[in-house]
């Protein structure tokens, strides 16, 4: 997929664990893990909103478009 989820990068920058984020955004650790690995089908705006709020960042800090992978 050409959309890269940089959730792990943001978590490292904020020195936060996935479990702590899961509690803050009220989403299970399993779902956040799937999201982090970019294996989810889609992402809700409400989820993006909650994550941005919890990590104090912009949607662009979490999601990134890369056309390198799509060329493979």
């Amino acid at each position: 997929m050409s959309i890269i989820v940089n959730l792990d990068v943001m978590l490292a920058k904020r020195k936060m664990q996935l479990k702590d984020l899961a509690e803050l955004v009220d989403i299970s650790v399993v779902n956040l893990s799937i999201l982090k690995q970019g294996k989810g089908k889609a992402m809700r705006f409400s989820t993006l909103d909650a994550i941005c709020k919890a990590l104090n960042c912009q949607p662009g800090d979490i999601l990134e478009y890369s056309n390198e992978e799509s060329n493979n």
Binding site: K39, G40, K41, A42, T47
Partner: peptide, 13 residues
């Protein structure tokens, strides 16, 4: 069918 649909839906996070 129902379970598979639920699983697919649950991948929208």
């Amino acid at each position: 069918d129902k379970f598979f649909e639920l699983f697919e839906e649950s991948l929208t996070i």
